[in-house]
Amino acid sequence: MNNLKLDVADQIAVLTISRPGALNALNSETLDELNTVLSEIEARDDVKVVILTGGPDKKDNAFKSFVAGADIAEMVNFSAAEARAFGMRAAEPFFKLMNMRQVTIAAVNGFALGGGCEIAMACDIRIASDNATFAQPETGLGIIPGFGGTQRLARLVGMGRAKELIFTCDNIDAAEAYRIGLVNKVVAKEELMDTARKMASKIISKGSYAVSIAKAAINNGYDMDIKNAVEMEANLFGITCSTHDKTEGMTAFLERRAADLTDF
């Protein structure tokens, strides 16, 4: 991989986007690499959580940029058809982050602009360093967000705030991103990766198969009517009650001991 680094330890995969000279901007090569590596990770039973973050810039500043956007140098001469294809190229790995059985955490360590904000929103959970900056600046370039920004942002922060951010191209800091619900947590930059790993370890300590089913229930039920969504949940609840982890977890609870949860 030319633009990604992958480190797996203790059932956690840390996936780092590394394009130092471009502040980790997303070009076609990077999107294709993401698509490939996420497929490989999803097939691994030894990975329960993925932490996505950005690598240092060319001056080795580790907190300059998470992902500074899509690569404008590649986009500048796109035709309408090429731009659509670029958006769909991003959709595939972004949907993998959203739907893969592993939990995905974005550890946002600096600029999360345009495509950077969009890839963070595709993850299940977002933790931001206190110096992080978020924006959807596309209308200032005469285009609109093309990697899901008009859709995921409204779902996370509400239609009114999403319209304001997209129409004005305003940058917001980590504290404001937390206030409006764009991120789950804000921490000092020196604590970012440790906080993400601690959250990952806590999630791993639960029933991983149950967590993956809960993720699917939340994702699939979000756009369903409540009656069908609750019926879907009941069906999935039934499935989890047929597992080793259900038997072990409930027995351990009644016996007042720690459960040994092993399903995935």
Rank of each mutant, 00 (worst) to 15 (best):
V14T: 15
E42F: 01
F94V: 10
T36F: 12
M250D: 08
D71R: 02
A91L: 07
L182V: 08
M88N: 10
E231D: 13
T16P: 02
E33L: 08
A80V: 14
E82T: 08
T53I: 01
E164W: 12
Y209R: 05
I213W: 02
F95Y: 06
A90Q: 09
K5R: 15
A175P: 00
L4D: 03
D223K: 13
I166L: 13
A252H: 01
R155I: 10
R179E: 14
A174W: 10
R197F: 00
K64C: 02
M98T: 13
R179H: 09
D124N: 15
A68H: 12
I17M: 12
E42T: 07
R89C: 02
N2L: 13
G142K: 06
D57S: 14
F63P: 01
N184Y: 05
P93L: 12
N77Q: 11
G54P: 06
M159F: 12
A132E: 02
K59R: 13
A13Y: 06
A91N: 09
N235M: 10
A70L: 14
A122W: 01
G149L: 12
V37Y: 03
T195S: 15
N24T: 01
M88Q: 14
A217K: 11
A107C: 07
F237Q: 02
M1P: 06
G160Y: 05
F86R: 15
L4P: 05
A81H: 04
P56L: 02
T104W: 02
I127N: 08
A162Q: 04
K246D: 01
R84M: 12
G181K: 07
L236G: 11
M121A: 07
Q102P: 08
N99A: 06
A234V: 10
A13I: 00
G21A: 09
V50R: 10
G116P: 00
T240V: 15
V67M: 07
A13G: 05
K59Y: 14
K215S: 01
K227I: 02
N228L: 06
Y222M: 10
E138K: 07
D130L: 11
N99I: 00
S242P: 00
T150S: 12
D60T: 00
N99F: 08
S201E: 05
A22C: 05
S28A: 14
T243W: 05
Y178L: 15
E233R: 13
A214Q: 04
P145M: 13
A62P: 09
T36P: 01
L38R: 06
K189Y: 11
I239T: 13
A252C: 05
K185Y: 04
I144Q: 12
S208H: 12
C169V: 11
V187Q: 10
A83T: 09
A154F: 11
L15G: 04
I204G: 07
D260K: 07
R257N: 04
S212Y: 08
G142L: 03
S212R: 11
N220C: 04
L31D: 00
V183T: 14
I17E: 04
A210W: 01
A13H: 07
F95D: 15
R155F: 13
A106R: 13
S205L: 02
A120Q: 03
M232T: 09
I41E: 06
F147A: 15
V37K: 10
Q151W: 14
E138Y: 07
V67N: 01
I213F: 05
S208Y: 14
I144G: 08
A128Y: 08
L236V: 11
S208R: 09
A62W: 14
M199G: 05
V14I: 13
L153A: 13
